[in-house]
């Protein structure tokens, strides 16, 4: 089998493939969406119209959406069959990232809550 055939089975991450026009359009669409999501993020963070306690969660959702835009339109990680290896590697990376972040934040928050010193004890320590 020649090299040409095997290249049609897989694509490298980040590699645009198609005509010049459609490649450029893909980047322009990606830029537009990313700018839009960034703008919405900054607006959400500074407005007082929205329900306060939900803003942090909303910002994280917007950030994840923007990461998705970057992955699809800039890095060309798609659900196509030629992209299976890239997507599998990404899925494993995302799994580890979430385990590390959520696991750490969860455990450390509980440790903080359970190890808070009571006011009386704090006073005893202060007197020494």
């Amino acid at each position: 089998m020649s090299e040409n055939d095997s290249e049609r089975l897989n694509v490298a991450p980040g590699e645009p493939h198609d005509s010049m026009m459609s490649e450029t359009v893909s980047y322009v669409v990606g830029l537009g969406l990313a700018l839009l999501l960034t703008g919405v993020s900054f607006w959400v963070a500074s407005t007082s119209v929205l329900w306060g306690p939900g803003i942090a969660t909303g910002l994280i959702v917007l950030a994840i959406a923007q990461m998705g835009v970057h992955l699809v339109f800039f890095l060309h990680i798609t659900s196509g069959p030629d992209n299976t290896n890239n997507v599998l590697a990404l899925a494993f990376g995302v799994l580890i990232v979430f385990l590390v972040m959520i696991g750490t934040i969860w455990i450390m928050a509980h440790m903080n809550a359970n190890m808070t010193v009571s006011p009386e004890l704090m006073n005893l320590q202060m007197q020494h």
Partner: peptide
């Protein structure tokens, strides 16, 4: 057989980035 270098090299780099 193995993939061509134009696939293997960026894939390896993708793993580094992840």
């Amino acid at each position: 057989g193995p993939e061509s270098k134009s696939i293997v090299v960026p894939y390896g780099f993708w793993l580094f980035v992840l």
